[in-house]
């Protein structure tokens, strides 16, 4: 039962993050929000008896993706001085 509450709370946070990711004007914030969704998802995977998936998601889905995003955002900002 305790898992259930945790999952519900995390789910609500993830939904908020999803809203942020999609609607937030600042791209960096949005990227981080999407990373958080990924991270929270990996926590849920542990509850769902999938620790290996959780590790992969945390490492690749969350960390690596965010890094790539930032890399590209950086490049775009470098070329576009106005933003």
């Amino acid at each position: 039962m305790s898992y259930t509450f945790i999952v519900i709370i995390m789910g609500i946070i993830m939904l908020v993050m999803a809203f942020t990711a999609i609607y937030h004007k600042n791209l960096k914030v949005a990227v981080i929000a999407s990373g958080i969704i990924s991270l929270f998802a990996s926590v849920i995977y542990i509850f769902l008896a999938a620790p290996d998936v959780a590790i992969t998601e945390a490492a690749i889905g969350s960390a690596l993706t965010v890094v790539i995003f930032f890399y590209v955002l950086n490049k775009i900002r470098l070329t576009d001085d106005t933003k």
């Binding site: 949005a30 990227v31 769902l48 008896a49 999938a50 998601e57």
Partner: peptide, 26 residues
């Protein structure tokens, strides 16, 4: 409308699929 936002949205979509797959395997 922003392409980066579209990609972020896609990454959310991607994560959601993983979530779905894991939960139906549980």
């Amino acid at each position: 409308k922003n392409i980066i936002k579209i990609i972020i949205s896609f990454s959310v979509l991607d994560t959601s699929i993983h979530l779905i797959l894991v939960s139906i395997g549980y």
